[in-house]
């Protein structure tokens, strides 16, 4: 089953970007990964690196603070490889998420909701400090195996799937692993490829996995010299595009995926009408975990 991680389809977005007839928009459909998101790639890579270095051995428990897609990936891969998984997550995480993680056999340590992810990370540090010999803590914000997974896989897939025609790569910053790893490899393959990173337009936003760098802790693996440009995207604009992608393309994607495409449109707006571009982005996951959100019912 873990062999099925990666090699996701590259989808051509046909209709919603029609106002840019000179631009081809393509997106990696990352929900085709067995755990349902792009996070299968770094999670597997960090676990494999841990096994290779000896940091992860039989008898140890994989521990991290995440209630998002990385947690689901750890829980799935841990179950498949026979390692126990312990996840610290804030009480504010949705009931549905807790059910998915628990169904995959992960042990959940619930921390105070109002302390958010910070509280969950503090809890992981506390648990690991008490008995470091019992745990493997991948720490996706600092682990180079995170970005290396995209360097080895995502970028090369994009290069092959576009027959090396890609002109622009656009991706959001969260841990920054997707952007950093894919950009480094694409620039090796063709330094002329323009790489644009995306952020939410405010510290308080609804784009899962995205980081507003000015107000967040800068991940150790982030390299701010890599991006040719950095653009901002609004949550509400992404919600509108989620609905259009569903109704006009038949693509039921997450708000963060739609936000990535919005970033592509912003890039396309700066391309001369006489030019041609192939803009590629990453659709991190599908809408399946976000169907309970209010925006579906709002105008």
């Amino acid at each position: 089953m873990l062999d099925r991680i990666g090699n996701t389809p590259l989808l051509r977005i046909e209709r919603v970007g029609q106002e840019f007839p000179n631009v081809e928009f393509c997106a990696k459909a990352e929900w085709f990964n067995p755990g349902g998101s792009v996070k299968d790639r770094p999670a597997l890579s960090m676990i494999q690196a841990g096994l290779a270095s000896g940091a992860l051995q039989r008898g140890k428990t994989i521990i991290d603070a995440t209630s998002g897609n990385t947690g689901i990936a750890y829980a799935m891969i841990g179950a498949a490889l026979g390692f126990p998984v312990q996840l610290c997550l804030p009480d504010s995480a949705s009931h549905e998420r807790k059910r998915i993680l628990a169904a995959l056999g992960a042990e959940l340590v619930i921390t105070a909701g109002d302390e958010g992810t910070d509280g969950a990370i503090r809890k992981v540090h506390e648990i690991v400090e008490q008995s470091p010999e019992k745990y493997f803590y991948p720490d996706q914000y600092s682990n180079p195996a995170n970005w290396q997974s995209h360097y080895r896989t995502t970028a090369n897939e994009i290069w092959q799937q576009t027959s090396s025609r890609i002109t622009h790569f656009v991706a959001a910053l969260g841990t920054s692993g997707t952007f950093v790893g894919t950009t480094r490899r694409l620039k090796d393959l063709n330094p002329a490829i323009r790489c644009v990173s995306l952020q939410p337009d405010a510290s308080f936003h609804g784009l899962e996995g995205w980081k507003h760098m000015p107000t967040a802790i800068r991940p150790a693996i982030y390299d701010d010299a890599l991006a040719d440009e950095n653009l901002e995207v609004s949550t509400e604009d992404a919600y509108q595009l989620v609905k259009r992608l569903a109704r006009e393309e038949g693509l039921l994607v997450s708000p963060s995926a739609a936000a990535a495409l919005l970033g592509c449109f912003k890039v396309a707006a700066g391309i001369p009408k006489t030019g041609h571009a192939v803009i590629v982005t990453v659709f991190a996951d599908s809408a399946s975990k976000y169907l309970n959100e209010r925006f579906w019912d709002e105008e």
């Binding site: 998002g68 990385t70 995480a93 109002d114 969950a120 990370i121 914000y141 510290s203 899962e208 802790i217």
Partner: peptide, 17 residues
Amino acid sequence: ISIIPSIAGGVPTMELA
């Protein structure tokens, strides 16, 4: 009363640092 953005994964903030 709690105000919580609908993002499950979340990211650490400056306060943690």
